[in-house]
């Protein structure tokens, strides 16, 4: 029968087949077309958590009717890979990059992918949270999380004490906050890479993200760990059996900068978005969403406990040293 069908095909059948084959490209075209309706959307690459970025986008769109944001959200490591992939296939596709640490961002600036413009309202942000190429719009504080019932570590070096074993640390190749911490400790007096070596010696486990550190401590897999204040406080507020501490010499402040891509398609829309995030209303949304804003005087967000010590890594100094830092770290925790 089938032989028969093939031997004497009727026009209609083959015609149908052809029509369907023809339909393939048409149907495929529907794919990207569907995602690019309306005015060309601003493509935003970010590593900021969903709980922060979604309200910001929502409020921005409410304030700018018709604006569209196309979002790529991933941890810093993946963001780097995405940028590299873009460069391999014809150039960066982002219009705006909102990173989680200034080192990564400076890397983009050095590659001439980002920079050349900061909004006028950037002047309102403290000096140590901005450069000529990008502006910090949120701060991550790397704090210590520990199981309820375990005494709070007074200083970071306490984590090398067997009483806190096992400890969990986030991966600086994945998480910007961990990279920031590495940047600080590597050059801090009494710490250096020896601090990480001591942690490893004490049975420290490396997990990929700060959230995994918090989760692991909450589950009882680890006694303590380094994580972001946001992650730790959120878990605690929801009932996880964890406590948060800001050990001496201080929680490491890692600011998340926003910057304009140099070869974006529609820089005006991109600039509008950046200006909004830096502005007071934008910062208010950041704060309400649970992140620490950089703009002074914005309230309603999470607060630093009074008297809690905070330290700032020397960003310009470490940015030249980034690869050496990661290599040194890799020699301790690398697999």
């Amino acid at each position: 029968m089938l032989q028969h069908m093939v031997d004497h095909p009727r026009r209609r059948r083959i015609g149908l087949l052809l029509a369907l084959v023809g339909l393939l490209p048409a149907g495929c075209r529907a794919g990207p077309a569907a995602s690019s309706q309306g005015p060309a959307p601003v493509t935003l690459y970010t590593c900021v958590s969903d709980s922060t970025i979604q309200p910001v986008i929502t409020e921005y769109k409410a304030a700018h009717p018709g604006a569209e944001i196309s979002l790529f959200r991933a941890p810093t490591g993946e963001l780097n890979a995405r940028v590299a992939a873009d460069l391999r296939s014809g150039g960066l596709k982002a219009d705006v990059i909102w990173g989680c640490d200034p080192l990564t961002m400076q890397g983009y600036v050095d590659q001439q992918l980002v920079g050349g413009w900061t909004p006028e309202n950037a002047a309102d942000i403290p000096r140590h949270y901005r450069t000529g190429s990008f502006v910090g719009v949120a701060v991550l504080y790397l704090v210590a999380v520990h199981r309820r019932g375990t005494p709070a570590p007074a200083s970071w070096s306490d984590l090398t004490d067997p009483a806190y074993a096992p400890v969990a640390v986030p991966d600086p190749r994945v998480a910007a906050s961990a990279l920031g911490a590495l940047s600080y400790f590597a050059n801090a007096k009494g710490y250096g890479t020896d601090f990480y070596r001591a942690l490893k010696h004490n049975g420290a486990n490396q997990v990929s993200t700060p959230d995994l550190v918090t989760t692991g401590v909450a589950q009882g897999l680890y006694q303590a760990g380094m994580t972001t204040a946001n992650s730790a406080y959120l878990a605690k507020s929801k009932g996880s059996p964890v406590e948060v501490s800001w050990p001496q010499p201080g929680a490491v402040a890692v600011y998340g900068p926003i910057g304009l891509a140099q070869h974006g398609r529609d820089s005006q829309q991109a600039k509008d978005f950046i200006t909004y995030v830096v502005s007071e209303p934008g910062q208010q949304v950041v704060a309400t969403a649970g992140s620490y804003p950089t703009r002074p005087g914005v309230t309603g967000g999470p607060e630093i406990p009074s008297g809690a010590p905070v330290v700032q890594p020397d960003w310009p100094a470490v940015s030249a040293d980034r690869d050496r830092l990661l290599d040194g770290y890799q020699s301790i925790f690398g697999s």
Partner: peptide, 16 residues
């Protein structure tokens, strides 16, 4: 990705 990524990278069409 290496065949069509230059034109279709990151699009739904490539996934399709």
């Amino acid at each position: 990705l290496i065949s069509y990524g230059r034109w279709l990278g990151g699009t739904l069409l490539l996934i399709l």
